[in-house]
Simulated scan of single mutants.
Amino acid sequence: MSLIGYARVSTDLQDTPAQRRELKAAGCTEIHEEFASGAMRVRPVLARVLSGMSRGDVLVVVRIDRLARSLSHLLEIIEGLEARGAHFRSLGDPIDTTSPQGKFTLQILGATAEFERALTRERTMAGLASAREKGRVGGNPGLRDRDPEAIAKVRRARDRSYFDKLNGDAQHWLPAVRQFRPRLPWEDVVRIINSRHPDAKPWTVERLRRASARFVKDGLLDRAVLDRASPAQKDDRILVIVAGIKSSAPEITLKQIAARLEAMREPTPRGRPKWATSSVAHLLERARQMGLLKNDPVQRK
């Protein structure tokens, strides 16, 4: 079991030595620092730390607010860790998912979040019913009158809501877009994302293009990802896909890579539906020679 620390401050005018000292005293063998607002769900260092967590590892923070600013975000991160067989511990709060007491506290937090959502729904329905009883028509008066300022305000609110939703799911799609576009066409990137997260809502080409364009608009993605994919030989294309699968999960075996390719309905270079581990090993070796992969060992099981 490895204790992995995460320290965050909001601006470069602040520093992290105090957090580092506490994390080191708690036994953390690795400590990662990030300068970012806690309200930002997409944080490169945090995303890298979470993607590198293995079974039995424990993510440690000094306080919950160093990791997340909302209960929903906190629970989302912890659920992601549990899916990997990893755990979470906050030194300043009674949350430690390696212990029964910490898990109980987490269950209480989850129930509290659900209770708050139920109350919000109940208040909304009660407010609408009260308005109907008083003869008031629902909706925005400015929109009914086609007021330009009201319309612009609603559009901004919808855009912000759309961005927040994309931001919340960014750990699923953003790394693949950064890694593969524009080297691969959108269709291949969508298949890679869907194969990595089979339980999530499937992505489509149009949805992924729109999400990427929205992040480009805010400078969170390089504009080059929207460029047309350059023509490539099929063999070169499959090299990039296999290298991407291996780099996203370094411990993956040849058999697992073959299964992933078959799940993506990716035919072999000879057009066959079934992949042999020897073919995968050959492509990985070529990918290393082309500089697409580090010279790491291959698991053959």
Rank of each mutant, 00 (worst) to 15 (best):
S248Q: 10
D235S: 14
T11F: 06
R144P: 00
A276E: 14
A26S: 15
L261Q: 01
V242Y: 01
V49H: 07
K234F: 04
A213T: 08
T16V: 10
R48H: 12
A152L: 12
L67T: 09
R196T: 02
L284W: 01
V190T: 15
R272N: 12
N140I: 08
G168R: 00
S72H: 06
R144F: 14
L128A: 07
V45L: 05
E206I: 07
Q101H: 08
A68Y: 00
V216Q: 04
R84M: 10
D227V: 08
I78E: 03
L226R: 03
D12T: 14
S72I: 00
A170H: 07
T16P: 01
A211P: 10
R41P: 04
L221W: 00
G127Q: 05
A150C: 12
Y162F: 12
T98E: 15
T29M: 06
L184W: 02
L106T: 01
H282L: 10
S51I: 00
D236I: 02
G244N: 03
R144T: 06
S2F: 08
G271R: 09
G291M: 13
A126T: 01
A83R: 14
R288E: 08
K165V: 02
G139V: 01
G92N: 12
S278E: 14
W203D: 04
A176P: 00
Q233G: 15
S212F: 05
V61P: 04
R121Y: 03
E187T: 15
M264T: 02
V242Q: 00
G110P: 03
W173T: 14
K201N: 12
L109V: 08
G38V: 03
L46S: 05
R117Q: 11
V190E: 02
Q179S: 12
D169F: 12
L109Q: 00
R89V: 07
M53A: 07
G271D: 07
L292A: 03
G5A: 14
D218E: 01
E114Y: 01
E262H: 02
G291L: 11
A47M: 11
P44I: 08
K24Q: 07
S2E: 15
S10M: 11
E285H: 13
Y6W: 07
T204C: 04
W186F: 05
D93P: 08
E187K: 15
K153I: 04
E187D: 14
A129V: 04
R158T: 02
D169A: 14
L166W: 05
R237K: 12
K165R: 14
I245S: 10
R288M: 07
T29N: 05
L184H: 03
V225K: 00
R210G: 05
G142T: 13
N295W: 06
W186T: 09
G56V: 11
D164R: 13
V45N: 05
T253D: 12
W173S: 09
M40D: 13
A25R: 12
T112V: 13
V242M: 11
A259P: 00
P175W: 07
M125V: 12
R155F: 05
P198N: 11
G92A: 13
L292S: 03
L283H: 15
A26Y: 08
H197K: 02
H282W: 11
M264I: 03
L119V: 13
A113K: 06
G110M: 04
S279V: 01
H282S: 12
R214S: 13
D169V: 12
L208E: 00
G5T: 05
R272Y: 08
E122K: 14
R270T: 05
A152W: 03
S279H: 01
I64L: 15
